[in-house]
Amino acid sequence: MSWRLTLKIHRWQPGDRAPYYDHFTVEVPEEAYVLDAIEKVWAEQDRSLAFRHACHHASCGSCGLRVNGREKLPCITPVTDYPNGSTIQIDPLRHFPLVRDLVVDMGPFSQAMEAVRFSIIRHASEGVPDARSSEPPILPEEDHEATRFENCLECGLCVSACPIAGSALNYLGPAALAAAERMLVEPRGVDPLAVWEAIDHDDGLWRCHGAFECSAACPSEVDPAAAIMRLRRYGPKVGQVARQQRR
């Protein structure tokens, strides 16, 4: 069976005074995802439409946008989440510089992730402090400790969903704070004091008002709000210890 949706898509390009919406009706298989519908609009109806995408399975984090106001990775959002024959509104992420249509600039977001020195590779089992010094053997032993990509896809959905990110322009944001917590739990060769100092300020850990929208939006089991709350409890102690060790 096929699924028919009308996509009401946000349009804007540099020079436009204000954004506007274009409507496109597409028919896709009912197994399709919203990203497939957007790609079909581009392929068959409007080649000028600009949108971000790469992996189509929630691994790269590039396709983040809003469907009917909710932050989504359209690559894993089934079209059947919306009634057959309905109109869905597609908007770019909020709180990011807009480049064109649905494309946003990941620069400021990436700077925040760099500020907390986030490294996406974990060389350790769950919860065990990192032992990055030991390079994994080419052919792992049976009891080898797993290496894993961090769950955070750096997709930016949490920042778009965060009400504080909309009012405090320099706020580090939930992704970077959650990343900082991971780096403090598993330092991966990074100086914990540097991580702590990157978040211990008015535009960092202490800016969050606890709306928890970030955790609701996260497509990848990161739960940034819980990480921020944990950091508020033990972070100052970690910072204090790190400072004493440096002396």
């Binding site: 600009a50 949108f51 971000r52 995408h53 790469a54 992996c55 189509h56 691994s59 790269c60 590039s62 494309v103």
Partner: peptide
């Protein structure tokens, strides 16, 4: 023409 890796590479098996 699109995003980095928006063609064959992005959708590969990894």
């Amino acid at each position: 023409r699109g995003e980095v890796g928006s063609g064959t590479t992005g959708r590969n098996h990894g």
